[in-house]
Design a protein around this nucleic acid. Structure first.
Length: 583
RNA sequence: GGGGCUGUGGCUCAGUUGGAUAGAGCAAGUGCCUCCUAAGCACUAGGUCGGCGGUUCAAGUCCGCCCAGUCCCGCCA
């Protein structure tokens, strides 16, 4: 149990005994904002004062009269208008760290009731290059999936790739006239040509009405399963897939591809179901579900179109089919959609229709996890100098190249393989960390200089803290993965120096922090925790020599380093960032 | 016209279910390597939290109105 949960429990019991409040009363325990107020605080007295008709300090005293904290805290104090300040006992603190030391999961057990959770993220489009627009979904989705998996949930990571729809008619038609052999033969086109191909096809599509008509017919061919169209489509998908795999490999991200085309066989049934549920109306030739709470410019209900006037289906139909499939076939308890904020309206609409159709059982939740845009340093959409969107591949390569230059300058004696592998880790880590450390919902400004900066809340800073820990291990000939204290030493583990205590107090908040992050789906909180951990470790590192310390101090400090190293490594791992032993 | 999101030191951002004197980092200035990687640490300076009202013992946080930026709003995804 986390310290926070323990205190919450103790204070809830005290409130129950003192004021006959229910045992599940939330006593408003929080980590203290300022160290001078102690380690934790209980703010319940302030809000209770009114309902109990007593002065807040009297209420606080009433709580203190009934709370049992002797085993873990010094005598709590009432401060200011009625805050209760709580200081952990040093031996209790040491005991908590000890628990982390001897536990493979650093004191954080898996959840008691695992859920089946689908994380829908990344989702690039076939026949297009992955670009900066896919960066955040890919990185944030992967991080959330890692955290939920670590907590013991059964997570399915789905790549809802754009592999269906009108653009394929366009591409197939264009290939027919420009490069017929590519329709039937793999590798007839160089991989990089896909982008050019798409652009050229799009241009023809926009300019030529006859071309548009052929493209429309090609879509019909494809959707009805006509062999040639199908084969061409397969080749295009294969080619794109290989490109995506390179990026995912570089980012160390795994996904199960299940594109839009997967749901094609279910689309007709989705519409039939909606009709049967009585939700559907025909409007201007289209099959629509009129929405509650959404209005158009004239104040009339807005429709969600589930079948176009030409009989075709659109993305709303696909998303509805996906919701239904994921609930009935995948048995999902929770479905997370990690897409940009611009789609929040769309998802609210799809979710509403799914709810009204009765497809979402009690206890199943559909959650849009939105994020803001990636902006350039000018505060506008991130583009290349020529104004094109930035391919993800070149963005990552640039980050790695910059890390490599920097690393080379700092380590002129280092060999090339070391520089290369380390630079790759640092470059990728920098990009991921810069993204994850921002509050998900706001836009963020992409800056190579800042993310690769040696100082501040950046990946290199955290990686460096870990490198310092490794340095201690190397110099002392100690394996930081192993427990440095023998069973005889363990009960005597203690902490004394202020920087040791500060570090330890932060360490024991690991469990409660991760649990909060999993609930709120905000990776930046994890970054914040790890940044503060690194800062506190660096302070400890300055003030407390480890290897030169006298026994038993030396062993105790090594133990603290060990827990710090494991926490840092695990935390970075949950962000999708590996550590390096030197840099 | 409707709706979403954003607005916090010069810059980039944190800020939990409302809680004590609003926190970091960068940039600026000053110190600290005979010692486990100085990619570090310590210290200094900088804010009427977009504006006006309201609710509350208590508002950056909740409510209303306004201003600015940005995104979305019928057959694209």
């Amino acid at each position: 149990m986390s310290v926070l949960a323990l205190l919450r429990d103790r204070f809830a019991q005290a409130c129950h005994r003192a004021f006959d409040l229910p045992l599940d009363f939330d006593p408003a325990i929080a980590a203290a904002k300022d160290p001078k107020f102690g380690d934790y605080q209980c703010n319940a007295a302030l809000s209770l004062a009114k309902t109990l008709q007593q002065p807040p300090r009297t209420v606080a005293q009433g709580i203190l009269d009934h709370v049992h904290l002797e085993d873990c805290c010094a005598a709590p104090e009432i401060a200011g208008p009625g805050f209760i300040n709580i200081r952990l006992r040093q031996d209790f603190l040491a005991q908590q760290v000890q628990h982390m030391l001897t536990d493979d999961r650093l004191g954080l057990p898996t959840v008691t009731r695992p859920q089946r959770i689908i994380v829908d993220f990344s989702s690039p489009n076939i026949a297009k290059e992955m670009h900066v627009g896919h960066l955040r979904s890919t990185i944030i989705g992967d991080c959330l999936a890692r955290i939920l998996t670590y907590l013991g949930h059964d997570v399915l990571r789905l790549n809802h790739v754009g592999d269906w729809g009108t653009q394929f008619g366009m591409l197939i038609t264009y290939l027919r006239e420009a490069c017929p052999e590519a329709l039937v033969q793999s590798d007839a086109l160089a991989l990089g040509d896909l982008v050019t191909l798409y652009r050229a096809a799009k241009q023809r599509f926009d300019e030529d009405a006859a071309f548009r008509e052929s493209a429309r017919l090609a879509v019909v061919d494809l959707q009805s399963g006509e062999a040639i169209a199908r084969q061409a489509w397969n080749l295009l998908c294969e080619q794109s897939r290989r490109e995506f795999a390179k990026i995912y490999g570089l980012l160390d991200i795994t996904l199960t591809e299940r594109g839009e085309s997967f749901y094609n066989p279910y689309l007709a049934a989705v519409v039939e179901d909606l009709v049967a549920a009585g939700l559907v109306q025909q409007d201007e030739g289209a099959t629509c579900v009129f929405l509650e709470g959404f209005t158009n410019k004239d104040g009339k209900p807005l429709p969600l179109i589930v079948q176009k006037s030409d009989g075709g289906y659109n993305y709303a139909t696909t998303d509805l089919a996906a919701v239904r499939y994921r609930i009935t076939e995948d048995r999902a308890d929770r479905i997370l959609y990690v897409t940009d904020m611009g789609q929040s309206g769309h998802f609210a609409q799809v979710f509403q229709v799914a709810q009204r159709a009765g497809w979402v059982p009690e206890g199943v939740s559909l959650i849009h996890v939105p994020f803001g845009l990636v902006l350039g340093e000018d505060g506008k959409k991130f583009k290349t100098r020529s104004g094109d969107t930035v391919p993800l591949k070149s963005l990552l390569e640039e980050a790695i190249a910059r890390a490599e230059r920097d690393l080379g300058d700092r380590n002129p004696q280092a060999d090339a393989p070391f520089i290369q592998t380390t630079a790759q880790v640092i470059g990728i880590a920098a990009v991921k960390y810069a993204d994850l450390s921002q509050n998900r919902t706001s836009n963020y400004i992409f800056s190579y200089d800042k993310m690769l900066s040696l100082q501040g809340n950046t990946a290199p800073y955290l990686l460096y803290a870990y490198v310092r820990l490794c340095g201690i291990g190397r110099k002392g000939g100690i394996d930081l993965e192993k427990h440095p204290l023998s069973p005889e030493q363990l009960p005597h583990f203690s902490l004394e120096e202020p920087s040791e205590l500060v570090l330890a107090k932060h360490l024991i908040q690991w469990g409660e922090t991760i649990e909060a992050i999993a609930t709120e789906l905000l990776p930046n909180r994890l970054c914040q925790y790890l940044f503060e951990l690194s800062q506190k470790f660096n302070q400890f590192f300055e003030q407390c020599p480890v290897l030169q310390a006298e026994e038993p101090r030396r062993s105790h400090r090594l133990a603290l380093c060990q827990v710090t190293a494991r926490t840092l490594k695990l935390g970075l791992g949950l962000l999708g960032i590996p550590t390096v032993p030197r840099m």
